[in-house]
């Protein structure tokens, strides 16, 4: 992002709670991040860390009840998406903000042709005629690399392979020239060869269309290949954030450090034994009042059990929510030297 340019999306102190019979689930806790124009922000973390709920909160996709989104602000252009009404939000969703989810079979409607499903947002958001919408649908399918596009408009989702369905989903998400594309594990269910096709397509489209992208994944390899900046989530919070090279070269949160060590690779050193993160992720029945990684952290000391670490700024547009990074605590921290 060019220095000083305002971000396309600015998320401030966002929290989301689910009110369930078993109690309140604090799925997202005081999340802050920005997305620059044309930038690709990678979001990683193990399942249940709040990646999907955060992004669904932004664009009002969570049913309420049980979800209560807020407090917080989601500044998009000159509006706060948490304050505008459902009708205005629907205009933004699938219009200026497109999204793609992991399983295209659940997001595509099995009883409508693919052509109708691409044309629908074009007619609704851009007011195109039936003919114009069909022409644009062909263009979009060609853009995402579906051969014989015009003939395939009349096909139903089940007539496409998994990789092709995911391309259709991307075509729908791109239909109205979004400024922001939110992609939630869009390649997780696909084979690596198909994933490589989709990732390459995504890079091409970013260059061509200049949109900003939020890419959620648990695959650090995918992040390493495509992200500009990375945000690591744990227990519904952002625990570390940095430019991609900085994050992989110099991870500062013990969770990020452990996560990077647990993944084997195909080219580098082969570890004799895999590193594991023992223990379980936190159960989010109350808002966090101490570090949520403390029970699994090799560096935890007394303070971590009683206070919630802020995201301490580090050199190089980097921050980490860990007391090891608190400059004020350095002299008293027992672990700081070997961290």
């Amino acid at each position: 992002m060019p220095k000083g340019a305002p971000p396309v999306l600015d998320v401030r102190s966002l929290s989301t709670v689910f009110h369930t019979r078993a109690g309140n689930v604090h799925a997202v806790n005081d999340v802050n991040f920005t997305l620059g124009a044309g930038e690709l922000l990678g979001v990683v973390g193990e399942s249940g860390s709040g990646k999907s709920v955060t992004m669904m909160s932004l664009i009002g996709l969570l049913p309420s009840p049980p979800a209560v989104v807020g407090p917080g602000e989601v500044i998009f252009g000159d509006r706060d998406l948490l304050k505008i009404d459902e009708k205005a939000l629907r205009e933004v969703r699938g219009g200026e903000i497109g999204f793609v989810f992991q399983d295209p079979m659940t997001s595509l409607n099995p009883v409508f042709t693919v052509g109708m499903q691409i044309a629908e947002p074009l007619r609704r958001h851009m007011g195109l005629s039936k003919k114009a919408a069909a022409d644009r649908a062909v263009e979009l399918l060609e853009l995402v690399g579906i051969p014989d596009a015009r003939r395939r408009l009349g096909d139903y989702p089940h007539q496409f392979s998994g990789g092709m369905r995911q391309r259709v989903m991307i075509a729908i998400a791109l239909a109205c020239d979004p400024k922001v594309l939110i992609a939630d594990e869009p390649t997780t269910a696909l084979d690596v060869t198909i994933q490589a096709q989709i990732l390459e397509l995504m890079q091409e489209l970013r260059e061509k269309l200049g949109m900003a992208v939020i890419w959620i994944t648990h695959d650090l390899g995918v992040i390493a290949g495509i992200a500009d900046r990375v945000m690591v989530m744990y227990g519904g919070q952002v625990v570390e954030h940095a430019p991609v090279h900085e994050l992989f070269a110099n991870p500062r949160h013990p969770y990020t450090q452990a996560l990077l060590k647990t993944v084997p690779n195909v080219h580098g050193e082969r570890a004799k034994r895999l590193t594991t993160i023992e223990g379980q992720p936190p159960i989010l029945l109350a808002p966090p009042s101490a570090c949520s990684f403390r029970d699994r952290c090799p560096h935890a000391w007394e303070l971590c059990h009683r206070a919630l670490p802020a995201r301490f700024p580090l050199p190089g547009d980097h921050d980490a929510a860990c007391f090891l990074c608190d400059p004020g605590l350095a002299p008293t921290s027992p672990e700081i030297q070997d961290a």
């Binding site: 092709m164 060869t193 490589a196 390899g221 995918v222 290949g225 992989f248 690779n265 195909v266 580098g268």
Partner: peptide, 26 residues
């Protein structure tokens, strides 16, 4: 060769250097 080149490498420097063999079609 194609399969191995498609595996995302958890190293940003390496990941952007590998020559991927992108297979066409299904």
């Amino acid at each position: 060769q194609a399969l191995l080149s498609a595996v995302p490498e958890p190293d940003p420097a390496l990941a952007r250097k590998v020559e991927r063999v992108i297979l066409k079609g299904d």
